[in-house]
Design a binder for these strands. Structure first.
Lengths: 168, 168
DNA sequence: TTACGTGCAAATAATTTGCAGTCCC
DNA sequence: GGGACTGCAAATTATTTGCACGTAA
């Protein structure tokens, strides 16, 4: 996990406090609208050419509040934003950013794959009714006791998903 | 399935003792090797006709030790056991058993869907190298502190996956 | 220029579905 | 006998890939 520097380099880019459907957690305000040159820098830092489409996607991903999206969702967002990119490129870009450690993949139900712009250790609520993914901001939830790991293995990561359904 | 060593090294971690595949409804201790009529009963109890293929699949699922499998794996097992069933039927059956509460679906990486014969609350290790799923038997791991659930929602289930990789 | 990036369409992979034939009660 | 079940193949869905063309360094 190569993330400490990346972490820092991105901190400013995030807007931790926007439209979380459910509990949003407050944090310091990001720069107004994540300027172009931040995304640019971000891309450079991981060795990706700041092309038109990558800039646009990076801007959509990190500039706005949206934090958990599928390729399809991002594709639609881009299209709506008059930034035509092909779906294939969206997939490619998401995968490249994930490999670079700027995004984290979350699988919750076998079908869709979500990408989370928050790469720090944290867990998720999954709203079964709306198929929405939301960060759990409560830090106490995090691993109070690590299970005994078998010989020869080490923990790569812990994924926890608390599935929620609407009370009837 | 190249896992014999892994099998052994992890044996201790499994809740071998509680081999109650038919748990939930039946509860009574499993007879030696889960004979036909147990599977039969199990199917009846959830309103599924005990057909040849369902009996065979049920026998493979609950009679043997294998506890986490994909449709493809079960299909292969069945074929090897000279019980020809179509892959579609395997999928159908797995879904029916899941709906009936006899199996639990676990998604770990977007691509494959695993079915777990243990439907009690528990978590998993996922061996990234071998793509194997193993129960975490440590009950202490379970919910030490439930996160604050947003208004109007209730927890449907908590899925935790501790991803392990081989130490280099 | 020149390797890298993009779009499109075709290719995969996993799973579901339509429907004709089969089996259980 | 009649509806539940099965198998096969075709259909879906999500994602990847091959390849000709465009573009940043």
């Amino acid at each position: 996990m190569p993330d400490v520097e990346i972490e820092n380099s991105l901190k400013v880019l995030r807007d931790d406090d926007s439209d979380l459907p459910i509990g949003g957690h407050g944090r310091q305000a990001a720069l107004t609208g994540c300027p172009w040159h931040d995304v640019n820098e971000m891309l450079q830092s991981v060795g990706l050419r700041p092309t038109r489409q990558r800039m646009a996607l990076g801007w959509l991903l990190f500039g706005k509040g949206a934090r958990h999206l599928t390729a399809e969702m991002l594709y639609e967002e881009a299209t709506n934003a008059k930034v035509p990119v092909s779906l294939a490129t969206v997939y490619n870009t998401l995968n490249q950013l994930t490999d670079a450690g700027l995004l984290r993949q979350v699988s919750v139900d076998g079908t869709k794959t979500y990408f989370d712009t928050n790469v720090t250790a944290h867990h998720h609520f999954y709203l079964e009714n709306s198929h929405e993914l939301v960060d759990i901001h409560d830090p106490h939830l995090m691993l109070q006791k690590m299970p005994e790991v078998p010989e020869g293995y080490e923990v790569s990561r812990v994924d926890m998903v608390v599935r929620l359904r609407k009370k009837r």
